[in-house]
Design a protein around this nucleic acid. Structure first.
Lengths: 236, 236
DNA sequence: CGCGCGATTGATTCGGCTCAATAACTGTGG
DNA sequence: CCACAGTTATTGAGCCGAATCAATCGCGCG
């Protein structure tokens, strides 16, 4: 991975800044961030980092999509969540001072900024709004994880797949034709749902037959989101 | 629930303080905490709080054991984790400014201190060590949740039960006879493992037959922890 | 244009859930 | 301290969702 300071825009005028955890940074803090960060690129399929390792900082995603996953006991990937432009990844390991609990891999070509952990700690100690924002993001994620745990334990594969489709729509949005703006293999979908690839395939074609979705190769279009919320027992 | 300021010791000389998130509070901060907190008691079985509600602060557990759980789509409890003396609960909802994502209920008689959220926010803004500690705890919990998600998706019930027994030992310890220092119904164990009550019962008696554990009514003694780690595919 | 991975479909197996019937235990009040 | 009532635990039988295994298809890419 090449790292440089010039390939991506300064943090001050980064288009993702206002939606990111850095939204509340002051002018001089942003300048410092720009000065300390470096940039990197990952091709589709490459690992950004691997679980159990440690990083000297965090990544801010400038463009591209990323899957966060853990290896199960038989070496099978379990996708925990996705990340996209504007998200910061790898920070939990820094803040809890533990090795990474997940790996991250690029779903398409990805460009990132790397922020040294010292910048985080420095900013945490002087900018309360930043602290609050970071806590908010972290604590929100715990709530999401609690929901996933309950779903995995209690819902059927059919229900979980319906919900996953809605999550993908929510997370990545749709292109101008209405297809989900993310390209995943059936195996990756299965890994996120927590089931076998064949089960995903069978249920997808069932949803297609029911008119809930349209399939075009690897691309998925959601036709009846409301039906999926019903099938998936999705309340919130 | 009765609330008073005198029933429990001051925070300064609370025996759990040094292991809690309040370990790094300064003298005057501890005095302020003592002044602002109130105390409460819950009988076994009572709810401390319910998911989707909001609290004006957080609870510190002074004594007793608590289950944290979520209601699944069919109204079935999913136990996410346990909490015990020294733990702070309910803070994630405060910090993410969202309704609670879990409920909490007393597993035995519980006494708690209630800390208004303003104290938390005030202390976050002036005590960096407290901030770091709180972040550390929250981020650690995310890592744990990631592990649980992977286990639920990929391990068998047998493996998960073996691991749960070890988690219970780790969390609550053993009494002088070697029995787990927590009294759970089979249904609660099942709810934590993410399976049916009958499956827990069958597998427990299997573990007993294999000599891994001893059962005495509701009480469980772990005889061969190492065998359980093998059966449960527990690496860390 | 062919190679190879990913997708699909079918057949079969099986872990684990549900339902049902006792048995054992907990704790409660007399 | 005992009896009773209501839980909770146990065990068995049967079923079903979903995993696995096997084979073929088809698209994307070099």
């Amino acid at each position: 991975m090449k790292m440089s300071k010039t390939t991506l825009p300064n943090c001050q005028n980064c288009s993702h800044r206002t939606q990111s955890v850095f939204a509340d940074l002051r002018k001089n803090e942003l300048e410092e961030l720009s000065a300390q960060k470096s940039c990197g690129f990952f091709k589709k399929g490459q690992y950004i980092f691997q679980e159990n390792s440690r990083l000297p900082g965090v990544y801010c995603i400038h463009s591209g999509k990323i899957k966060m996953f853990r290896m199960g006991p038989e070496g099978k990937e379990q996708i925990i969540r996705f990340a996209k432009a504007g998200d910061m990844i790898g920070y939990k390991s820094i803040l809890s001072d533990e090795p990474l609990s997940v790996s991250a891999a690029a779903l398409d070509d990805v460009s990132v900024c790397f922020v040294p952990k010292q910048f985080l700690f420095d900013t945490l100690s002087i900018n309360n709004m930043f602290t609050r924002k970071l806590m908010e993001v972290a604590c929100h994620e715990i709530g999401e994880a609690n929901k996933i745990i309950t779903n995995l334990a209690q819902k059927t594969v059919r229900e979980r797949l319906a919900e996953v489709l809605l999550i993908l729509k929510e997370t990545f949005g749709e292109d101008n034709e209405g297809f989900l703006e993310v390209k995943l293999t059936r195996e990756e979908i299965a890994s996120f749902v927590g089931t076998a690839t064949e089960s995903v395939i069978r249920l997808l074609s069932e949803f297609k037959k029911d008119g809930f979705i349209e399939l075009k190769g690897r691309r998925i279009k959601i036709l009846q989101a409301n039906q999926l919320t019903i099938v998936g027992n999705v309340f919130d």
